[in-house]
Simulated assay, not measured.
Amino acid sequence: MPAGLHITDLEAAINHWRARAPAGAGAALAPEVAALAEVYGRMVHGQLKECAHADLPVPALAAWLAWYATTPDTPCIAICSTSQGDAVCKGCGRTDQEVQHWPALHPLDKRAVWRRITLQGTAWRFNRYAERAAGAPAGAVTDS
């Protein structure tokens, strides 16, 4: 069973859809925003940080997956220390198992990994190689 939907990802998806489909006449929400807002409201009311995958209505999951498709899929920065025997990649922060099975992971599981490595902030992608991960121009040099 995939991980749950974290409220920060739900907020990002809502903001994505609000930018793509602003409220219409009479402040009518786009269907994607309405579907996600329903889940968001329940989570806020229940003071939940995560919504179980099974509790996501089909329209909300579809809207979230469409947003997810616009985000970077992998945290890889092409410096993989798991291939050298490390249990956790110094480049991206994923475990050896996460690197190996990444293509088969459900998008909710991938986002859970992204959340964890972002909060940890210890992988090279978040420090001295952050520019490379962000697509800095070739030859850009930084002090780190």
Rank of each mutant, 00 (worst) to 15 (best):
M43G: 04
E98W: 13
P31D: 14
M43Q: 03
L65D: 04
A62L: 05
L36N: 08
A62G: 10
W102C: 14
P31T: 10
A34Q: 06
V33N: 04
E50H: 09
D86V: 07
W102D: 13
A52V: 03
D96V: 02
G91E: 11
P57K: 02
V39R: 06
V99Q: 02
R94D: 14
A63Y: 00
L61Y: 06
A104Y: 05
T70A: 14
W67A: 11
T95K: 08
L65F: 00
E98K: 12
P31A: 13
V33A: 03
C51P: 14
D55V: 00
T71V: 02
C89Q: 00
A37N: 12
K90S: 03
P103D: 09
Q47I: 05
P103Q: 05
A66S: 03
A104I: 07
E50R: 02
E38G: 00
V58G: 14
Q47K: 08
Y40A: 10
P59A: 07
C51A: 15
A35I: 06
P72W: 09
R94Y: 10
P103K: 04
A78Y: 01
G93W: 02
D55L: 11
A54C: 13
G85W: 13
V39F: 00
L56S: 02
P103G: 07
Y40T: 07
V39L: 05
C89A: 06
D86P: 01
E50D: 05
Q47P: 01
P57M: 09
T74C: 15
V58P: 15
M43N: 00
Y68G: 14
A87S: 14
G91P: 13
Y68E: 13
H106W: 00
Q97F: 04
G93A: 07
M43Y: 03
V33S: 00
L56Q: 00
I77T: 02
A30H: 11
A63K: 07
L36E: 09
Q84V: 07
A87Y: 05
G91K: 08
W64L: 15
A34F: 01
K49C: 14
G93S: 00
G41W: 09
E32Y: 03
G93V: 04
W64V: 07
P103N: 09
V99P: 08
L36I: 03
A35C: 08
T95N: 11
C51R: 12
T71F: 11
A66N: 05
E98A: 12
A34V: 01
A63R: 09
L56G: 01
H45D: 15
Q97Y: 10
P72Q: 09
H45T: 02
A30P: 13
C76L: 12
C92Y: 02
A52C: 00
A78R: 11
T95S: 12
Q47R: 07
P75D: 10
Q100L: 15
A66P: 03
Q97A: 10
D55P: 15
Q100V: 01
P103S: 03
T82K: 06
H53P: 14
I77Q: 01
Q97N: 10
T71N: 12
G91S: 12
D73L: 11
V44N: 08
P57L: 09
P75H: 03
S83W: 05
A66R: 07
A87W: 13
A60W: 04
A30E: 15
C92A: 10
